Amino acid sequence: MHLQNITTRLLRYNLWANERLTSWLMTLDRKILYTKTGSSFGTIDRTLQHIFFAQLYWHTILVKGQIKEFNDPEEEHIVEKIIAELMMSSQQLINDLSVLNQEQLIQIVQASDSTQSRYEYILHLVNHGSYHRGQIVTMCRALGITDEIPVTDYDAYLWWIENM
C-alpha cells in the first residue's frame, strides 16, 4: 500500500476512534468526566484536553515543519468544548495531511526534541491518541462504568470500513 494511503487511513481511523469514544462519553453523567482518578491527567476531561492539544502540536509541526511555542492550558469543566475542538482537529488533520505526497511524507522535520519523517510523526500522533483513549476507558472502568464502552481498536475500524 502506498505511504499516502496508509497515513490517510490512519488519520481517518483517528477521527473514527475519537468520534466513537467521545459520542459515548457524552452519554455519561458529566460528573464522571470531571471525577479525579489516579491517571496521568487526573480526569477524563483533562485527558481529552491532552489528546486535543497534542494533536494541535503535531499538526503545527507536520504542516509548518516546526513549532516556535506551544501552550497546553489547564482548564476545568470544558468537556463539550474540548470534544468539539477535538473533532474539528481530527478532521483538519485528514484535510491537511492526506494531500501530502510520498516525498512530503518522507521529508524530515524537527520536533522539539527529535528529528523524524512526517509519516513517522503521523504514526506517533495516531498511536498517542490510541494510548490516551485506552487510558480513558481504564478510567471509566475504575469509576464503575462498564456498560457499552465502545471498541476503538484499529482492527475494529478495519472491520467497520469493510462492512459499512
Rank of each mutant, 00 (worst) to 15 (best):
D29A: 00
L3S: 09
G134C: 02
I51H: 05
H59D: 01
D96F: 01
D96G: 00
S90I: 06
I78N: 11
A54G: 05
K36V: 10
N5F: 12
T7Q: 11
I78M: 08
W24H: 14
K64N: 13
R30Y: 01
F53Q: 13
Q92G: 00
R141T: 06
T8Y: 12
F41D: 08
L21M: 10
S39G: 15
G38W: 04
T8A: 14
D29I: 00
E75Y: 09
I44M: 14
I108V: 09
N14W: 12
T35W: 09
I94V: 15
S90Y: 08
E120N: 12
A54M: 04
H59W: 08
I94G: 14
I149E: 12
A156G: 08
F70H: 13
P73T: 00
I44W: 06
Q135E: 13
H132I: 02
S89E: 09
K36I: 04
E69T: 07
H2R: 15
R30I: 07
I51E: 04
T8S: 13
I108A: 10
E80V: 11
H132F: 02
M139R: 03
Q66V: 11
E76A: 05
E85V: 00
I145L: 08
R20W: 10
S114Q: 15
V63G: 02
V79L: 05
Q66M: 11
Y13N: 01
T43Y: 14
Q49M: 12
L105P: 14
W16E: 02
K81W: 01
H50L: 03
L100N: 07
A54Q: 04
I136C: 04
H128V: 02
R9V: 03
L62C: 08
Q104R: 07
T22W: 04
H77S: 15
Y157D: 01
S98R: 07
V79K: 00
R20E: 15
I149T: 07
T138A: 11
R12L: 02
L48E: 04
E80D: 15
W24K: 15
N18G: 01
V79W: 05
W58G: 01
Y131T: 12
W160S: 11
E80M: 06
L86I: 06
F70V: 07
T8L: 05
F53C: 03
R20Q: 10
I94H: 10
W160F: 14
A142G: 06
